[in-house]
Simulated assay, not measured.
Amino acid sequence: MRRATSKKLGQSNSVNSSPADLFRSASSKASSKESERIDSLFYSYANGSSGLIDPEGIETLCADMEVDHTDVRILMLAWKMKAEKQGYFTLDEWRRGLKAVRADTISKLKKSLVDLEKEVMRPSNLSDFYSYAFRYCLTEEKQKSIDIESICELLTLVLGSQFPSQVYLFVEYLKTQNDYKVINMDQWMGFFRFCNEISFPELSNYNPEHAWPLVLDNFVEWVREKQN
């Protein structure tokens, strides 16, 4: 009798479950499976000793996605993860990034890079990504600036496709001038503002009185001399 009663109660609970309850249950199971796959994927690239995906792991990941490790989309993926240390992904960062791009396999991750690039290039996100790219390259504790050679490479990588003329000339200027050995965040963000606000190559609306970093005043002067 007890067994029968128990069975009936079980049947009653099942029958009384609402569609919303059943959906939540199925969704929870699917989410749990997705999380398991994301974690499993992480450990397939992580260093067994450090528990992190290190530069070697990232190179293997890129090879599996058939993407060069210098591809800007890898930096975009790091931005999505909010990765803090260049060349390393923690499990939490990995989870955050892959859930955000809805990828739990290499195939899905590779496909997500196309949409990720479109997302980053929206004006509302580009400034944040550009700022992140600079911070991501500060590899030493208390480091505030980046050497000119690295800045030239980074500028070409993150902004070259959006503002090719400005980036090309600014890189040329940085490589030929002797006043600056490094670039700081204020100068870095100043160039981004310059690209978005100043008509180029006319430079007709550039006013040095408008609190531009001195490096940009010098750059504009250099461009005008070059034009003449």
Rank of each mutant, 00 (worst) to 15 (best):
P164S: 09
N178W: 00
C195N: 12
L174T: 03
K99V: 04
M76E: 14
Q162G: 08
T5K: 13
L22K: 15
Q162D: 09
S32Q: 11
S25C: 07
S124C: 12
S50E: 08
S107H: 06
L22M: 14
L159G: 13
V72C: 06
V171D: 07
R102P: 00
L216E: 01
E149I: 11
R122E: 13
C195Q: 09
E197G: 02
S35C: 09
S27V: 04
I38A: 10
D217W: 02
S145A: 15
V215N: 05
F192C: 07
G160L: 07
N218Q: 15
D179I: 03
R24M: 14
K226A: 02
Y132W: 04
Y206D: 08
A211M: 06
L214H: 02
S35R: 11
I148N: 01
Q187P: 00
A100P: 00
I183A: 15
S40R: 12
K226L: 12
I151Y: 00
P164N: 07
V171C: 15
D147R: 09
G87K: 01
H210T: 02
G160F: 04
D186H: 14
E140T: 06
D39M: 06
R3G: 10
K80C: 12
Y180K: 10
F194N: 13
Y206A: 13
E56G: 14
R24V: 14
W94T: 07
K85L: 10
R73L: 02
N207V: 07
F192P: 01
S124W: 08
I198K: 07
I183R: 05
R224I: 12
S32G: 04
F134V: 06
P164C: 07
L157M: 14
S28T: 11
A26V: 12
N228V: 08
K118Q: 07
R95V: 12
R193C: 07
Y130M: 10
G97E: 11
F163P: 04
Y43Q: 05
D147G: 06
S165L: 15
F200R: 10
V158H: 03
Y45M: 03
V101G: 09
S145F: 10
L157R: 08
V215R: 07
R73F: 00
D68W: 00
Q143R: 02
D21V: 10
S14L: 14
L52S: 05
K226Q: 03
G87P: 04
T5C: 06
R224C: 06
F163C: 10
T90S: 15
E59T: 03
D92H: 04
A103T: 05
D217E: 13
L214C: 00
A78D: 02
D128L: 12
G97D: 06
E209S: 13
L203K: 06
W79H: 11
N228F: 00
K7F: 08
V72H: 05
S17V: 04
D179E: 13
